[in-house]
Amino acid sequence: MTGEGSSGAQRPSTGGEPPVPAEAAPPAGTASSPSAGARSALPVERLVTAGQGFSQPQYTDNFYETVGGHATFVKLVDAFYDGVANDDVLRPMYPEQDLGPAKERLLLFLEQYWGGPKTYGEQRGHPRLRMRHMPFRVGPQARDHWLQHMRAAVDSLGLAPLHEATLWDYLDRAAHSMVNAAD
């Protein structure tokens, strides 16, 4: 390539096209218009072929992986059940002395729901949350206790605001949908 300003100067190409001679190329940063009556030249940066220069935003990626995968959901479930263990309203709803099996079920459900392993469905079938909670009297007071412990658990994760809001929105709606009795 010859020095700048010489008659043999060429502009570098983009996208694998051959170099364009400087005298035939539009000014840097613009595209030539096809006719005198056409719109004025647009910055080249705005002329992007569909699909080029676009990457999918992080919030549409797999939520499970984005927030930390298995470790994050274990932390969430452990923190939640730490609160449930000493809750006089919620603890009686768990027939097992050991909360371990309940923790495992919630962990597997949440992991599958948010894009992780499909173990819950393989072991237990469709979640059928309302049906599975029907044997228990879930009134507004139980819902509020559940939400209190789950809020503390979500807060313990330190998620990015968008991820925290996404997770909390689901959990809040799920808790309200489980109410099957008046207090």
Rank of each mutant, 00 (worst) to 15 (best):
R130K: 11
K103A: 06
L42V: 12
L162I: 12
P135D: 00
G8I: 06
T2W: 10
P135F: 00
N180H: 01
T49R: 15
F54D: 14
A152S: 13
P21D: 12
F73N: 00
G37M: 10
A41R: 08
P27D: 06
A152R: 15
R130P: 01
D82G: 09
S13L: 06
R11L: 07
S35I: 07
P117M: 04
T66M: 09
P27L: 07
A9R: 11
T30A: 06
Y64P: 02
E96W: 02
R128V: 02
S55Y: 10
P127C: 04
V154W: 02
T60V: 11
T72Q: 03
D78C: 09
A174S: 02
M1L: 11
E111S: 02
G115S: 07
K75G: 03
P101L: 10
V154T: 10
D61F: 10
A181L: 05
L90W: 01
R130L: 01
Q10P: 09
E122K: 07
Y113A: 03
S35V: 07
F63D: 08
E111G: 00
V77E: 04
S35T: 14
R11D: 08
Q10M: 13
R143G: 04
E104G: 00
D87W: 03
R105D: 05
V179L: 00
T60H: 13
P18A: 13
A160D: 13
Q10H: 12
P18I: 06
G125Y: 03
N86C: 12
L108R: 04
P26C: 11
D78P: 04
V48N: 12
R91P: 01
V179W: 01
R39Q: 13
W146A: 03
A102T: 06
S156W: 06
A25C: 10
P34Y: 04
E111A: 00
G8P: 05
M131L: 04
S32H: 12
A160W: 07
P27W: 07
S32W: 09
A9D: 11
R39G: 13
D61T: 14
A41W: 07
R105V: 04
G15F: 11
S33N: 11
M178T: 06
Q112W: 02
Y113L: 05
D88Y: 07
Q141V: 15
G115V: 00
W146D: 08
Y59M: 14
P92T: 09
D183P: 09
E23Q: 14
R46K: 14
V67T: 04
W168M: 02
S7I: 11
Y59H: 15
S32Q: 10
T72W: 09
Q148W: 05
L129N: 00
G125H: 00
E164Q: 14
M134H: 10
W146C: 02
L171V: 10
F63H: 07
L157E: 05
P34K: 09
H145M: 13
L171A: 14
G3L: 15
P127F: 05
P12S: 15
G116W: 00
F63V: 03
S55G: 10
L108N: 01
A50S: 12
G69N: 01
S32Y: 08
M150R: 01
